[in-house]
Amino acid sequence: MNAALEINALNVYFGDHGALVHAVKSASLTVAKGASFGLVGESGSGKSTILKAITGLAPQWNGEIKVEGRPLGAKRDRNFYKTVQMVFQDPYASLHPRQSVDQVLSETLYLHGFRDIDDRVNQLLQDVGLGPAFRFRYPHQLSGGQRQRVAIARALAPQPDILLLDEPTSALDVSVQAEILNLLSDLRAAHGLTFVMVSHDLAVVAHMCDQAAVMQHGEILEVLSIDAMRAGQTAHPYTRTLLDASANRVA
């Protein structure tokens, strides 16, 4: 079995007993090693919540999540964080406002037990297309695209196998979006990464992924290949609606 990520009958809940929200309903999907998998759907359809459940940021879940064949328990251990990393949606919110790029990357590397931190920080910055000149800057001295590159460098620091991307370009300018997407594609090729990418933009998913799951109201409606999506071979009417809405951009 060479699945990087396997999810079976996953339910995720938010809130207390009084106001329990059933955010993801019995979701199942399999992502092969080295694949790039898209999760599409409108806002509130539960696509980001699946990522949160995988990373342990949404603790109320049941069902089965397997990472590289090992089922996950209630707690994530350090080994998990070395395998799975996440890039957040908004680079303006995902970097600590009082920490320089150097502090962010150094602490991450330190937490993962690396000792040649100095060399690795420079290497990471190079990998994401930022020179050493950016190393001691604070987030407010960086543009949105540069911040997202730093966030990607942080996610790459522990040398993960699986990268979870939560709408990594939706907070960025259109001109910068393509740069970041190309950077991610290059990194995937260079490091042999598996991607799980959440997006509401079918064009982005079509560009980046080989397979996608369509979600609505917390349920996975269907899983289809990008080729099938391009050819318009959809099983569910909602997918059809989504496709039509962005028809002129998917091709």
């Binding site: 990373t55 964080y81 995902s94 970097l95 600590h96 406002p97 937490l111």
Partner: peptide, 26 residues
């Protein structure tokens, strides 16, 4: 509940480190 605290949690940082090194400075 901000993303940068989530991000450092995903690096395996414990509550003590998060409070002292990430929340106190702010």
């Amino acid at each position: 509940s901000s993303d940068y605290i989530s991000a450092i949690r995903l690096q395996g940082a414990g509550p003590l480190r998060i409070i002292i090194k990430h929340i106190w400075p702010l």
